[in-house]
Amino acid sequence: MSIILSQHIDKPSNYDDIPFQIYHYPKRYRNQIKIGDSFIYYQGDRHKKKNRYYYGCGIISGISPSFDSDSYYATISNSIRFNPIVPIYHPEGGFFESKGYNDVRNRINPAWQNAIRKVSNKAFDEILTHAGLSNRLFLDLIEVHHLLSEENSPKIKPILSNFNEIEIERLLEEEYSEDDLLSVLINLNSKAHLLEKKAIVKRRVANQKVTKILKKLYNNSCQLCGVNHRNTYGADVVEAHHIEYFSLTQNHEPNNIIILCPNHHRLIHCAKATFERNEKVFIYDNGHKEALLYNKHI
């Protein structure tokens, strides 16, 4: 099911929300949100029209009650921040959420006061399109979610400790076939259970799907310098960099990945650059700062 989640992004919330990670909501909405639902974030404002917009999307990956059971927490996966944001008003008139409204409700206009509400597939797709995304991209993210949720999550960190972060990112890319990768892992550490090794192969499949989506989103250009090698050399060589190292977090959510040219990817690792999310800049060990040139998802 597709839903809208109301969440202020430009001012504090009365709930324990962490945008793009956790959504905290009252008990009365418990039957209106399910694990596996795809959603779009909406920010409302009673007084200023310019503050009424959609600003991101994702998938509900878990739900748990609060300690007193008066509210619930939904965990979010595969989230993407819209750039640009999408105003609630459709360019052709009316509201985006009025498109296909009779599939989910009787009235043409949505109940804006509802923190969680259904949205038609037509409206969902049009909002994504105006955010510069596509329904196909979102379906691919849902497939990634299912790939990982089907897994029994065996511990893979001990195996990853045999590699440095650059080696891990190369293993996650397409330089090995699945059979070759499994062979490398088997020969590397005979003590590790075969299921753990197969789990890495499975995560690699999910990682490749995410990176392909993001490379397509940026037309195989580096998010830092904008270089696109296809224009000059006829080849695409951009790479996926994990902001929080995969070796530590096993996190390949879209908001943890940046697409870089090989030079910048190498520089970030060698110069020990860290990423400052609020400013969207890399800060190198010597103090040099470099801002993202392109950003459509973080």
Results as ranks from 00 to 15, higher is better:
N135P: 09
F124W: 05
K122R: 11
N114I: 00
L133R: 06
S120C: 05
E126H: 10
N121R: 06
E126F: 10
S134P: 03
N114D: 15
G132D: 07
I127N: 05
I116K: 10
T129L: 10
K118Y: 12
F124Q: 05
F124C: 01
L133A: 04
D125Q: 13
A115D: 14
A131G: 07
D125C: 05
D140G: 05
I116C: 00
V119K: 06
A131H: 07
G132A: 00
A123N: 07
S120M: 02
S134A: 02
N114H: 11
I142L: 15
A123I: 01
A131E: 06
H130V: 02
I116M: 03
A123S: 04
S134R: 02
I142T: 13
I116H: 09
L133Y: 10
A123R: 04
G132M: 00
I116G: 08
S134Y: 00
D125N: 14
V119F: 05
D140L: 09
A131K: 04
A123T: 00
T129Q: 12
L137H: 07
L128F: 06
L141W: 13
F124I: 03
E143I: 06
L128N: 03
V119L: 01
F138Y: 11
F124V: 07
L139G: 12
E126A: 12
E126M: 13
E143L: 09
L133F: 10
D140K: 07
D140T: 02
L139W: 12
N121Y: 10
G132P: 01
S120Y: 00
K122F: 10
N135M: 11
A115Y: 14
E143D: 11
L139P: 11
L141E: 12
E126D: 14
A123Q: 03
I127Y: 07
D140E: 07
I127G: 03
A123D: 07
R117M: 06
F124S: 00
E143A: 08
L137T: 10
L141M: 14
N135V: 09
T129R: 13
A131L: 02
E126C: 10
F138D: 08
L133M: 06
N114R: 12
V119M: 08
L133S: 08
S120W: 01
L128E: 02
D125A: 15
F138E: 08
L141Y: 14
E143T: 12
I142S: 10
L139C: 13
D125R: 13
I127M: 00
E126P: 11
I127A: 04
S120D: 06
A131M: 07
L128V: 08
S134M: 03
V119A: 01
S134L: 00
R117F: 05
R136N: 10
F124G: 05
S120T: 06
L139D: 14
H130M: 04
I127C: 03
A123V: 03
I127D: 04
S120N: 02
R117N: 03
L128D: 05
V119N: 08
I142V: 15
F138W: 09
N121L: 08
D125K: 12
F124D: 01
F138H: 15
V119W: 05
I116F: 07
G132K: 02
R117Q: 02
N121W: 09
L139N: 15
R117D: 04
D140A: 05
T129D: 13
H130Q: 02
I116V: 09
L139H: 12
I142W: 13
D125V: 11
